[in-house]
Design a binder for these strands. Structure first.
Length: 480
RNA sequence: GCUCCCGUCGUCUAGGGGUCUAGGACACCGGCCUUUCAAGCCGGCAGCACGGGUUCAAAUCCCGUCGGGAGCGCCA
């Protein structure tokens, strides 16, 4: 059975790179009826935080990457890592290292300055039994280093890149167990993947070198080596590794921006994978059915916000108005436009969704397009500059005044009737209808961009519409 | 510096010796529609990093150059 895993470290939020790795793994497991394991690599005591673990889990669930097994925590498996490390020690395949990290750090810096890579020279590789005993009794701390064999072939067949060559001679005797008793990443991963029967490791290409090191450990332990697939990195617009500088990078931030989980999934899938030369929009089911490592690209992909938003708008277009209405509610509450989720008139909200239509590219857009329908009349604030723009043209104010009068007498308050009034009055005055339309649009919304005016007025209701036109007319007079 | 990976429109990509005058999508620019903005429809701009081979034929295979990226921790 195919067993894959996603193994984030809880030292930050789930960003798009991590999310994409998780997605690819999940997709593979779904497609082949395999197992998808979630493992939290929390051996960095200083940087790991429970809050991050919580957030990562939340974001993974939001993306729809369920079911998964776990989460398993490495800090709950410390005994196991120690057991394997000491076993290696007893067999002479690893050794205690008493070198102080400070000293090594200094040597590393010096080597780097001289333009050379620092490799641990093996100071402690051949310490005598007595000396080891003495130093332990002295209370000296030690780490455990693996004995890296010479000229061992560590090449592997990558499922997306093909053969990748490494020799063990490129590596030094790296630490597998830190002096605080914690395993290092490359060591813990091997033991976990082996114990959890992971047989395919899919991760970012920044791990290629780690893979070689891990293969070294597999070989030393005599364990079966899983298959590997290294997927391309996700870059920022400057072609540098995605970082905080590139704006919202945590998946949760996109959720708060009003991106749908299925759109996020779709977008992430297309970062480094494609189906053919046509299809861009995929449902979750289609992705599960069509995804394969064979079609994963080798090139790093630049994160393109515009495309994310476009994909989101396409998924939004497919949704029923009822569903969109529900989805938008939290954002209305967040913006302070409605008191609570319960206080909203659903039927009316659906009408709002209808008139906003395809303008909605992100859920947050509802605020920009429809806030004026939720606001109180007194919260519609004009500026003299915009007001001037709104009434530009000869006789516009007069026409609006007349329209307002007729509107007051209107019995049937619907978009068709309203439109008729406005168009008739405009042509009576030999004025293009767009003039009063623009003025009234501004009057009821204090904006120049809104959904269709007549529908907006209908939904706003007669009283509020007329109130606002009055208020606007007064404002114009006062600002002459 | 060393090791490894990668180079097709601005971006994501299709293509893997002839069907490529290189296709699609996003973005951008026009036009139509129109009540603003979207949407929709029509049209446009724009790319095989470079240089050598191999071959009747190269975006595709080989070599080199250049460019980009990653790794080189008692971080993961």
């Amino acid at each position: 059975m195919l067993t894959v895993r996603f193994a984030p470290s809880p030292t930050g939020y789930l960003h798009v790179g991590g999310a994409r790795t998780a997605l690819f793994n999940w997709l593979l497991a779904q497609k082949h009826g395999g197992k998808f394991i979630l493992r939290i690599e929390d051996t960095d005591r200083e940087r790991s935080k429970e809050e991050y673990t919580r957030q990562i889990l939340e974001d993974i669930k939001w993306l729809g990457l369920v079911p998964f097994e776990g989460p398993f925590f490495q800090t709950q498996r410390l005994e196991r890592y120690r057991e394997v490390a000491f076993d290696l020690l007893n067999k002479g395949l690893a050794y205690r290292c008493f070198c102080s990290p400070e000293k090594l750090e200094e040597e590393r810096k010096r080597a780097y300055k001289a333009g050379k890579a620092f490799k641990y020279p093996g100071y402690c590789a051949n310490l005598s039994e007595e000396e080891i005993k003495k130093r332990i009794e002295n209370g000296e701390k030690f780490a455990i280093r693996i004995r890296m064999p010479k000229n061992e072939d560590l090449s592997f067949e990558d499922k997306v890149r093909g053969k990748i060559n490494f020799s063990s001679s490129e590596f030094d005797d790296f630490v597998i167990l830190k002096s605080d008793g914690m395993p290092t990443y490359n060591f813990a991963v091997v033991i976990d993947d082996h114990d959890m029967k992971v047989n395919l490791v899919v991760r970012g290409e920044d791990h290629i070198t780690n893979t070689a090191k891990q293969i070294a450990i597999y070989k030393i332990l005599g364990w079966e080596i899983p298959e590997f697939a290294h997927i391309p990195l996700i870059l920022g617009p400057d072609k540098k590794r995605l970082s905080k500088r590139h704006g919202a990078r945590a998946v949760g931030e996109w959720r708060r921006e009003g991106i749908l989980p299925e759109a996020m999934m779709n977008f992430l899938a297309l970062l480094g994978w494609s189906w053919d030369d046509k299809q861009q929009i995929f449902t979750q089911e289609e992705l599960v059915e069509k995804f394969s490592l064979e079609r994963v690209s080798k090139n790093p992909a630049v994160f393109d916000v515009d495309k994310l938003i476009w994909i989101n708008s396409e998924h939004l277009k497919k949704k029923a108005d009822e569903e969109k209405a529900e989805l938008v509610i939290p954002f209305l509450v967040e913006a302070g436009l409605v008191e609570s989720e319960e206080s909203i008139d659903r039927a009316w909200l659906i009408e709002v969704i209808k008139i906003v239509g395809d303008r909605l590219k992100k859920l947050t857009d509802i605020v920009a397009y429809a806030d004026f329908l939720f606001k109180e009349d007194e919260d519609i604030i004009y500026t003299s500059e915009d007001a001037k723009k709104a009434i530009k043209g000869d006789g516009v104010v007069e026409v609006v005044e007349e329209i307002n009068k007729v509107l007051k007498e209107l019995d049937k308050w619907d978009r068709t009737e309203i439109e008729k009034v406005i168009r008739d009055k405009a042509s009576e005055h030999n004025l293009g209808a767009s003039k009063p339309i623009r003025a009234i649009r501004y009057a009821i919304s204090a904006k120049f961009v809104t959904p269709g005016l007549f529908e907006s007025m209908e939904l706003l209701g007669k009283i509020r519409t007329i109130n606002r036109i009055n208020k606007f007319l007064e404002f114009v007079k006062a600002n002459k």
